[in-house]
Measured scan of single mutants.
Amino acid sequence: EEWMVEKALMVRTGLGARQIESYRQGAWIEGVHFKRVSPSGESTLRGTTWYNYPEINKFIR
């Protein structure tokens, strides 16, 4: 699984929702560690946020 939603990321990493938000707003790079995608497939600020687990795992190492 490369891309996953927040709940799956929480299960895989043990991070809480606030921790994920903090990383997203600070250290993680949009387009690398996470992306927002609307149902139409376009990038957007209001779409579902998807997280790239392999890239996040590399960051944590």
Rank of each mutant, 00 (worst) to 15 (best):
residue 37 V to Q: 07
residue 40 S to P: 13
residue 12 R to M: 13
residue 44 T to R: 05
residue 9 L to K: 00
residue 55 E to L: 07
residue 40 S to A: 13
residue 58 K to W: 06
residue 41 G to W: 07
residue 52 N to I: 02
residue 23 Y to C: 05
residue 18 R to Q: 14
residue 30 E to H: 05
residue 16 G to K: 13
residue 45 L to W: 07
residue 25 Q to K: 12
residue 56 I to M: 01
residue 54 P to F: 12
residue 48 T to C: 08
residue 7 K to T: 14
residue 44 T to W: 08
residue 56 I to V: 08
residue 56 I to K: 00
residue 43 S to I: 09
residue 49 T to P: 05
residue 8 A to N: 09
residue 22 S to G: 09
residue 34 F to Y: 13
residue 47 G to S: 12
residue 22 S to Y: 15
residue 32 V to H: 05
residue 51 Y to T: 00
residue 32 V to G: 01
residue 15 L to A: 01
residue 35 K to Q: 06
residue 39 P to I: 13
residue 61 R to M: 15
residue 49 T to F: 15
residue 43 S to Y: 05
residue 61 R to W: 09
residue 53 Y to I: 05
residue 36 R to V: 15
residue 36 R to S: 14
residue 48 T to P: 07
residue 15 L to P: 00
residue 50 W to P: 00
residue 1 E to I: 08
residue 3 W to G: 00
residue 33 H to C: 02
residue 30 E to P: 05
residue 34 F to P: 00
residue 37 V to P: 06
residue 29 I to W: 03
residue 53 Y to M: 05
residue 20 I to Q: 01
residue 49 T to A: 05
residue 31 G to Y: 04
residue 16 G to I: 09
residue 44 T to N: 12
residue 58 K to H: 08
residue 28 W to I: 00
residue 54 P to C: 09
residue 49 T to I: 15
residue 42 E to C: 08
residue 60 I to H: 03
residue 55 E to Y: 03
residue 28 W to T: 00
residue 10 M to C: 06
residue 8 A to G: 06
residue 39 P to A: 12
residue 38 S to P: 13
residue 23 Y to Q: 03
residue 18 R to E: 15
residue 32 V to F: 06
residue 52 N to M: 02
residue 29 I to P: 00
residue 12 R to T: 06
residue 13 T to M: 06
residue 42 E to H: 10
residue 5 V to H: 11
residue 44 T to Q: 12
residue 33 H to D: 01
residue 15 L to V: 02
residue 19 Q to H: 05
residue 5 V to S: 15
residue 46 R to I: 14
residue 50 W to H: 06
residue 47 G to R: 07
residue 50 W to Q: 05
residue 25 Q to T: 11
residue 61 R to H: 14
residue 29 I to F: 05
residue 10 M to I: 10
residue 25 Q to V: 11
residue 33 H to K: 00
residue 3 W to L: 00
residue 43 S to M: 09
residue 28 W to M: 02
residue 29 I to S: 06
residue 23 Y to G: 03
residue 3 W to F: 02
residue 22 S to C: 15
residue 31 G to P: 02
residue 46 R to V: 14
residue 19 Q to M: 07
residue 28 W to V: 00
residue 22 S to T: 12
residue 31 G to F: 05
residue 35 K to R: 09
residue 61 R to L: 15
residue 49 T to M: 14
residue 49 T to S: 04
residue 30 E to W: 04
residue 56 I to D: 01
residue 18 R to P: 09
residue 57 N to P: 00
residue 53 Y to C: 04
residue 12 R to H: 09
residue 22 S to M: 14
residue 26 G to E: 11
residue 51 Y to S: 00
residue 28 W to L: 02
residue 25 Q to G: 08
residue 24 R to L: 14
residue 14 G to P: 02
residue 48 T to E: 15
residue 35 K to I: 12
residue 19 Q to F: 04
residue 59 F to E: 03
residue 46 R to P: 15
residue 28 W to H: 00
residue 36 R to L: 15
residue 11 V to W: 10
residue 29 I to T: 10
residue 57 N to F: 13
residue 49 T to H: 10
residue 23 Y to R: 02
residue 50 W to M: 13
residue 10 M to K: 06
residue 52 N to D: 02
residue 25 Q to E: 14
residue 57 N to K: 14
residue 15 L to R: 00
residue 45 L to Q: 13
residue 21 E to V: 07
